[in-house]
Design a protein around this nucleic acid. Sequence first.
DNA 1: TGGGAAAGGGAGAGCGCTCTCCGTCGTGCT
DNA 2: AGCACGACGGAGAGCGCTCTCCCTTTCCCA
Lengths: 354, 354
Amino acid sequence: MSNEPVRGPGSPTLEDVARVAGVSRATVSRVVNGVRNVDPEIQETVRQAVAVTGYVPNNAARSLVTRRVGSVALVVSGAGEEEDEVGEDGFSTRQIFGDPFFGRVVGGIVGYLRPRGIHPVLMLADTADARSQVLAFLRQGNADGALLVSTHAEDPLPRLLTEAGQPAVLFARPARPLAISYVDCAHHDGGSLAADHLVARGCDRVATIAGPLDVPASQDRLAGFQNAMARHGRPYVPVVEGNFTLGSGVTAMERLLVEHPDLDGVFAANDLMAQGAVLVLREHGHRVPDDVAVVGFDDSSAALACRPQLTTVRQPVENMAAEMASLLLTTLDQPDRRVTSVVFEPTLVVRQSA
Amino acid sequence: MSNEPVRGPGSPTLEDVARVAGVSRATVSRVVNGVRNVDPEIQETVRQAVAVTGYVPNNAARSLVTRRVGSVALVVSGAGEEEDEVGEDGFSTRQIFGDPFFGRVVGGIVGYLRPRGIHPVLMLADTADARSQVLAFLRQGNADGALLVSTHAEDPLPRLLTEAGQPAVLFARPARPLAISYVDCAHHDGGSLAADHLVARGCDRVATIAGPLDVPASQDRLAGFQNAMARHGRPYVPVVEGNFTLGSGVTAMERLLVEHPDLDGVFAANDLMAQGAVLVLREHGHRVPDDVAVVGFDDSSAALACRPQLTTVRQPVENMAAEMASLLLTTLDQPDRRVTSVVFEPTLVVRQSA
DNA sequence: TGGGAAAGGGAGAGCGCTCTCCGTCGTGCT
DNA sequence: AGCACGACGGAGAGCGCTCTCCCTTTCCCA
């Protein structure tokens, strides 16, 4: 084993390490990747050679032959439309990345992927153009698969991905049945939890601010809420549709207050809208929860930022996101496994607002 | 040009396209990459062959020879420490990704990069382990360079990156001088803007909630604020240190209220803390802005979510983030250019809280 | 009309790695 | 002692692409 520093023009290659260690390229590869048995003594020699040369494997060369790059795409689909354009490229993305719910998703995914040495590539797919960009990206082998967080129902991307045969896992069940893995939450049960809690609290005149009704999750939360209320003998519940933003919660609550000034309970389909509702209620002089109880959904950071802090239906988002990543990696390792989906149960987190 | 579908075992390669088009591999490559002159007629033939075969270039093979992968790392450095661990892998990341300020940064970066077909790889570097992971990632050629958003001062990563000769651009000036490009905001001027506004409003007993004082941005905001106040004849301003979270704003405001119950103006070094301050003030029966005026910093979504909406010093974060990406791409194209930095001017956004 | 340059296409050598095959041992069994 | 087999290292063929040469063709100008 010679001891000269070994400087190629660029960074050291397997060949360099092999030369220093006095073995073949194949052996170094075996040691680096830990495949097959290699004599412990030789292993040690190779490791030292790696250290001496400062060798780092070139991932491009590796994936060229393995057909795996060791990274996944994190696709946020159907974010904002054309609105909110600023500057040459448009910053319509601000909204989605600022969403505390989305923050939890990313956190969960990164938490799972990172210990495994995998890092997500952030992509937006809000236009047809962007969608084909995502597809091309995957087909070029820039990522092994996709984690897809869709924000609206008619997103064509899940279908496109399955058609292209690209491994993917969705956050939330697709609007129409599709042979694709997904992770979801039992939104229906979540709606029930909210209803049960409001009724148990003694609320009698209850309304709800639903999410966009083309999204399955919104439908389920609403249905679960309505069914449970019906079970409690209140078959008719005023409903106003929002779009999951704080602003829409404000608007919805204002409308509810006009139409039903004697409300004593509100279930909002997410925390941001619940926060908006609370703001309006307080501005109109209603105490929360004494006059009107408010229940949110998600248990996002908005629930804590709100005053009073929100009682909310908690989705185990981080766990769901981690499961999503886990499912994808499994799919990658066993390509012919059939699609699997996992549904998590929500829980009620009681704080001050109800 | 034969018309059979041409099915290799995997996806079609340059070779396949060349065969279909009846030209050489090199020519197809030239057409695909748009380099050198190629006879228009042949170009057309090749394009058709590409369409017929459904050819997509393999990026691994390409970067193996070009030494460029066409992606950059977006590194969030020094996020949470060991706190907030949940599940096997820890979700300490929740906080940072939920931060509305961070959302704007990501939005700005993605907005700039996306039209250029580049997508950021999300990485966390909150531990020594994670830092070497980032370094290895770059050295393996998984990304061409790094965009670094540091949240605390003593982050060693900027230095590590320069030492490793990896192209990188920072968000915010490094704590100690370093030969590295960065983008920043004139925090000092921002602090002055806040002071001027509070004084102009007639506030006389003003305090400030500073950010963590080991961060240059916090220092500058504070200094700018204090200097301007001194200029207005108020050399002594009560200061409490926070850490940029809503909770710390709450704590800080409570302390200020105890020590200076007759306050009539507060400058918080970011919106989240300002929001916390407003919550406390209102809980204690102070009207905002009538009794106490509050000015925040950042103009994040928290400024809008807050009631009353925050008057705040706006950092053009999206533009700054875009500039950061732009600087990095320039560096990649011209490796021997010397480091450059850009500093943006903040502006005052007057809303209801002051 | 000859010569030179420019234009444009093809051949082929790698980029750095993995992986299959093959050869060479050492070992245990008959 | 002979043989089969397992263990382990090396050789070499690519993975799909880019890019430097080199060769042919065309065209312009003297």
